[in-house]
């Protein structure tokens, strides 16, 4: 397992995800209202970003700056208006099992148990239903929900639901985990526990993670590097490395360390300007 700080490996040129001048324009349909028919939204305005293999990369940005839009593009759920996104040097053309997404709203099938929900992800990948079950149980164990296989989503707390969603994403064996504000809907304490567990799992499995958040604290705690986005149309304003080792994050109370507070302050300064702009424009 990598005990080293991410920055210690910054010299490597092993790029996992690369976004080159990505633009995305939405044409608002305006529900048939004539006056807004021609309105378009420039969500992304030429975004460039490189993420290394095994990096935990967090994107931080004001609301509406295009974070989810970018994540959907990387996931292959939508196509960009212009520019390219490369994974391992190959352009993204659609969803694939090399990437898995964790959505903010859990996105669990309410009619399936925790186990059933994880199995759902495997139904295209593994034909043997017994193996599917084995894999699903394994990943539910990994996220600490081994005892809750038979529970339906409505029988689980928000934090547990998100654990199921993480298990589901991990179960497909992706190289890249895409997470769109996955912990935004859970309470502060649960959130910290989830963050901690996520780091542990990611470090154990060596995944590349692209993680979106509103929270500066979350960004500093999780990220090897943080990208701060500008207000819409979104671009990368700055990339800030967080100089904490992975060991430190898991063992110590790093939230009082100088690196932590320093990085936090830096991000806050960067974000403040953009949040102000976003506040004015919408």
């Amino acid at each position: 397992m990598s005990n080293s700080n991410y920055a210690g490996r910054a010299g490597e040129t092993d790029i996992k995800i690369e976004a080159i001048d990505v633009r995305k324009t939405f044409s608002a349909r305006g529900n048939g209202r004539k006056d807004v028919n021609n309105l378009t939204t420039d969500a992304l305005g030429g975004l460039n970003l490189s993420i290394s293999r095994g990096e935990f990369h967090v994107i931080l940005g004001p609301s509406g700056c295009g974070k989810s839009t970018f994540l959907d593009l990387v996931a292959g759920l939508t196509t960009s208006t212009d520019g390219t996104i490369l994974i391992d040097g190959k352009p993204v053309t659609g969803p694939g099992p090399d990437r898995a997404t964790v959505f903010q709203q859990y996105a669990l099938l309410p009619w399936r148990t925790a186990l059933g929900n994880v199995e759902f992800a495997l139904e295209n990948l593994e034909k043997d239903s017994r193996k599917r079950r084995e894999t699903a149980v394994k990943y539910l164990d990994l996220v600490g929900l081994g005892d809750f296989c038979g529970h339906y989503p409505f029988e689980l707390s928000g934090g547990m639901k998100q654990r199921v969603a993480i298990a589901r994403a991990m179960a497909v064996g992706p190289e890249v985990l895409l997470m769109d504000e996955p912990f935004a809907a859970v309470d502060a304490l649960t959130r910290e526990i989830l963050q901690h567990d996520l780091l542990r799992i990611v470090y154990e499995t060596g995944k590349t993670v692209l993680f979106i958040t509103h929270s500066i604290d979350e960004a500093v705690f999780l990220a090897d590097r943080v990208s701060v986005m500008t207000a819409r149309p979104g671009t990368i304003k700055a990339v800030v490395p967080v100089l904490l080792t992975r060991n430190e994050r898991l063992s110590d109370d790093i939230k009082v360390s100088e690196v932590y507070t320093g990085t936090r302050h830096k991000l806050w300064e960067l974000l403040k300007e953009e949040a102000a702009k976003a506040g004015v424009s919408g």
């Binding site: 759920l77 997404t101 709203q105 759902f120």
Partner: peptide
């Protein structure tokens, strides 16, 4: 829930699979 459709799409499900595994079942 459209996020369920989005989720199944992100898992590489075909339109037909999405239809009977998510839409049909969800509409039940």
């Amino acid at each position: 829930d459209p996020t369920l459709v989005k989720m199944s799409r992100s898992l590489g499900m075909s339109k037909f699979q999405m239809f009977y595994k998510v839409l049909l079942r969800g509409a039940l």
